[in-house]
Amino acid sequence: TTVKVNGTKYKFDTPEEAQKFAKKAADKYNLKVVVDGDDLRVE
């Protein structure tokens, strides 16, 4: 599972880890998590 934040992709072994990271990033930058198929985007 990958998470894309500000054009940078981060790869995670499990969707749970990816979800946690995406949520933290979204909170930090005051953005929202967008599900894109198997991957997540923070925008």
Rank of each mutant, 00 (worst) to 15 (best):
Y29I: 04
V33Q: 02
E16I: 07
K23S: 08
T14L: 04
V35G: 06
V33H: 01
A26R: 04
D13V: 07
V34M: 09
A26P: 00
F12I: 01
V33K: 00
T14S: 10
K23E: 12
K11W: 14
K32T: 14
E16L: 08
K20I: 13
A26W: 03
D27L: 12
G7Q: 06
G7C: 11
Q19K: 12
E17D: 09
F12S: 00
G37F: 04
T8F: 14
V35N: 08
A18P: 00
V42R: 02
V3D: 00
K24P: 01
K9P: 10
N30Q: 10
V42K: 03
E16Y: 07
K23A: 11
V3E: 01
E16V: 07
K4S: 15
G7W: 03
D36S: 07
D39F: 11
V3P: 00
E16H: 07
L40N: 03
V42L: 15
T14K: 04
N30S: 08
K32E: 10
K9G: 07
Y29H: 10
V35A: 10
K9T: 15
N30T: 05
E16N: 06
E17S: 06
Y29S: 05
T1K: 07
V5S: 02
A25N: 07
N6A: 08
G37R: 04
Y29Q: 07
E43N: 05
K32W: 08
D38W: 08
K11M: 12
F21Y: 06
R41Y: 10
T8H: 13
E16A: 10
D27R: 09
L31M: 14
T8L: 13
A22P: 01
A22T: 01
Q19A: 12
K4Y: 15
Y29N: 07
E16C: 05
N6K: 07
K24T: 13
K23Y: 11
K9L: 15
T14H: 05
T1Y: 15
N6Q: 08
D39E: 15
K20C: 01
L40P: 03
D38Y: 09
G37D: 06
F21G: 01
K32G: 07
A25S: 07
T1V: 13
G37K: 05
D39P: 02
E17A: 11
V42H: 03
K20Q: 13
D38V: 09
K4W: 15
V35S: 08
G7L: 04
V3K: 01
T14D: 08
E16W: 07
V3W: 00
E17G: 05
F12E: 01
V34W: 11
D39I: 15
E16S: 08
P15Y: 14
Q19Y: 15
N6I: 06
D27W: 09
A25P: 01
K32N: 11
T2Q: 05
V35F: 13
E43V: 12
A18Y: 00
D39A: 09
N6R: 09
F12L: 03
K28L: 13
D38H: 10
T8G: 05
T14N: 09
E16P: 02
G37H: 05
E16T: 07
Q19W: 15
K32P: 09
A22D: 02
L40F: 09
V33E: 02
T2W: 12
K24R: 12
N6E: 05
K9C: 14
V5Q: 01
E43F: 08
T14F: 04
K24C: 15
T8R: 14
A22H: 00
Q19P: 00
D13S: 11
F12A: 00
K9R: 12
P15M: 13
T14V: 03
A18K: 00
K9F: 14
K24F: 14
F21Q: 02
A22V: 03
R41L: 15
V3R: 00
K20H: 11
K20R: 13
F21R: 00
Q19S: 08
K28R: 11
V5D: 00
Y29L: 14
N6F: 15
G37L: 04
T2D: 03
A26S: 06
R41D: 04
A26T: 03
V42P: 03
A18N: 00
D36F: 06
K28Y: 14
N30M: 07
L31Y: 10
F12V: 00
Y29R: 05
A25W: 15
D27I: 10
D38L: 11
D39L: 14
K20M: 13
K9D: 11
T1F: 14
T1S: 07
E17P: 00
K24N: 13
A25K: 08
K32Y: 10
D38G: 10
D38Q: 11
N30R: 07
V3G: 00
Y29M: 11
D36I: 08
K24A: 15
R41G: 05
T14R: 04
T8M: 13
T8K: 14
Q19E: 11
L40T: 03
R41M: 10
E16K: 06
N30L: 06
T1C: 09
Q19H: 13
Y10H: 05
G37M: 05
L40R: 03
D36E: 09
K32R: 11
Q19C: 12
Q19G: 06
G7P: 00
G7D: 06
T14A: 03
V34H: 08
V42E: 03
A18D: 00
L31D: 05
K24G: 09
D38N: 12
G7N: 07
T8Y: 13
G37C: 05
T14P: 00
T14Q: 03
E17N: 06
T8A: 10
D36H: 06
D13F: 06
N30F: 07
R41N: 09
K9I: 15
A25M: 15
V33I: 13
N30Y: 07
V3S: 00
V42C: 12
A26I: 03
A25T: 14
T14E: 03
P15Q: 08
E17I: 05
D38A: 10
K20P: 00
D38P: 12
K20G: 07
L40M: 06
A25V: 15
T2E: 05
L31S: 13
V5M: 11
V5H: 05
V5K: 00
G37S: 04
V3H: 01
D27F: 08
A26F: 02
K4E: 13
K28F: 13
